[in-house]
């Protein structure tokens, strides 16, 4: 049996032709923009908005961070990494956020896959309940954690009854962790469920026909196919946790996470320079995570990457 292949060669060059026409279409679109000043005129409100509410304040913020910090005298950006209180705040926030994202992706990823694949009574209800926390602001999430693990929380009352001592975790790092996990899980579940809908079942069937059991199918087919969704939803959880303010504020955790540091530099010490430098640092880290997520979700890397 021999190979092809005028035919297939032709279909390949057909794909190339397709790319060329796309490029041509894009060119003509730019051409339209250039030829019609009216189109540019229509962009003016958007540009104004962009400059007034984003570009100007952000430029000022960035510039402000270049100034020396009034306590240490260092350039504020440098102080972020050189001054222990800021560096620890940054590192702890990173650590908690990464930990939360990984745990959320692992647990809620499995849950989302299970929910997408199985039908049972009360499923719609369960999904609604699991995704309900999305509707809560951080303050309420913090409040819920206190209800569970605070001084008067369910756990404290329970342990008081059994062992005569109050167990609580709400005000420690664990409380923060639980709170962040709480609002990360629904995001992961919804994303993973949506991604599961798009899985190509015949890939799993092909793998099984070749002898792959559940574990191999999961490892070789499902996880690779879901990985763009898992990575992107993980990155979004990470970004959300990095910037979460309400939960941390409500819990009043001793360890000050980055958003709280910004808040207290700003309001308690009127140290605008430091607040600016911390904000920009937070913004850049979050932005990197989000653009990473967007690239994967947009499928530019695709399942084959």
């Amino acid at each position: 049996m021999s190979l092809t292949s005028h035919h297939e060669a032709r279909s390949l060059s057909g794909a190339a032709a397709d790319v060329t026409t796309k490029a041509a279409r894009r060119r003509s679109y730019l051409g339209t923009l250039r030829r019609q000043p009216a189109v540019l005129l229509a962009l003016v409100p958007a540009l104004t908005f962009f400059c007034a509410f984003w570009l100007l304040p952000f430029t000022r913020l960035v510039a402000m961070g270049m100034q020396p910090d009034k306590n240490s005298g260092m350039i504020a950006y440098w102080a972020v990494v050189a001054q222990p209180q800021y560096l620890y705040s940054l590192l702890w926030t990173l650590l908690v956020s990464i930990g939360v994202s990984l745990l959320a992706v692992a647990t809620a990823g499995v849950a989302g896959f299970f929910l997408a694949r199985n039908r049972f009574r009360g499923k719609a209800m369960l999904v609604a309940m699991l995704t309900f926390p999305l509707a809560f602001p951080g303050v309420v999430v913090g409040f819920l954690v206190i209800m569970l693990g605070g001084r008067q929380g369910a756990l404290a009352q329970f342990s008081m009854l059994l062992f005569g001592e109050r167990w609580m975790f709400a005000y420690s790092l664990a409380g923060l962790f639980v709170g962040y996990l709480y609002f990360s899980i629904p995001r992961v579940i919804t994303t993973v469920m949506a991604a599961c809908e798009k899985l190509d079942v015949s890939l799993e069937e092909a793998a099984r026909s070749l002898g792959a059991g559940t574990w191999r199918v999961t490892r070789d087919v499902i996880v690779p196919a879901l990985s763009p969704a898992l990575i992107s939803t993980g990155a979004i959880c990470f970004a959300t946790s990095m910037g979460a303010f309400g939960t941390a504020f409500t819990l009043g955790t001793r360890m000050s996470v980055l958003p709280l540091s910004i808040y207290s530099e700003f309001t308690n010490y009127a140290n605008f320079t430091m607040a600016a430098a911390l904000s920009v640092t937070l913004g850049v880290i979050t932005w990197i995570a989000l653009s990473f997520a967007r690239r994967l979700a947009g499928g530019s890397l695709g399942a084959s990457a």
Partner: peptide, 11 residues
């Protein structure tokens, strides 16, 4: 098994 949509592992 051979499927209509090939079902090749993309990774």
């Amino acid at each position: 098994m051979v499927f209509q949509n090939y079902a090749l592992f993309p990774n």
